[in-house]
Amino acid sequence: MTLPGLIALALLAWAVLRFAAGYGPRDPALRQLSAREYALVCAAADAAFPPGGVIPLSGTQARIPAHADRYLAALPPRNRLLIRLLFVLIEHATLIFPAPGWDGWRRFSALSLVQRMAVLEGWAHSRFLPRRLAFQGLRAVLTMGYFACPAVLRAMGLAPLAIETPVVAADLLYPPIGQPKSSIRFGVADLDRAVPRTPLDPRGPLQPGFEAPPA
């Protein structure tokens, strides 16, 4: 191989290492996110929601990656693919729009927190509409994930109130989705069960699963 060929090969190997390699293992509890996607979502989650501040939880502490995984699993295949393409775009667009600093020419998930925040600011305020839209799409996925965290909702005073669900006639007909009708657990007697039907009290108890853990 000629010298220029060798240099080109070395550069290519270096670029591949910087942009497509070095991912840690994927979280085995996740069903959808690959190791690369997991790294990107974690990196973007903490850039959008850094630790500390008025709501102390960071994006990863609020378990945004777990939510993104559930969201991908719930989407139909075609739409899941669109979200995946969005992740690939953000992860590797630093090839074209590098982060500030001498070491800014790396994949998004390998950047420092400060660099990642700067990159996302660049997307947010780009003069190129598709770039802004891509940022909004990513931020929407992350924000929904942040709001799926009960502690975040509590910190904002927006956790859902407890509601005791009454049994109505239709509940005698339908099983939970995916189950046979034999799994319907209600009978006629349940229709008469007294359940509060008055307006909720905004200071009332929170929905189970959203309450603060005991001190």
Partner: peptide, 22 residues
Amino acid sequence: PGVLAVRMPGMGHQFKQELLDL
């Protein structure tokens, strides 16, 4: 709330501050 929050401006700590407005 997560759906409504998507429209709030900002990023990072500023975004968190805005979210408290909800």
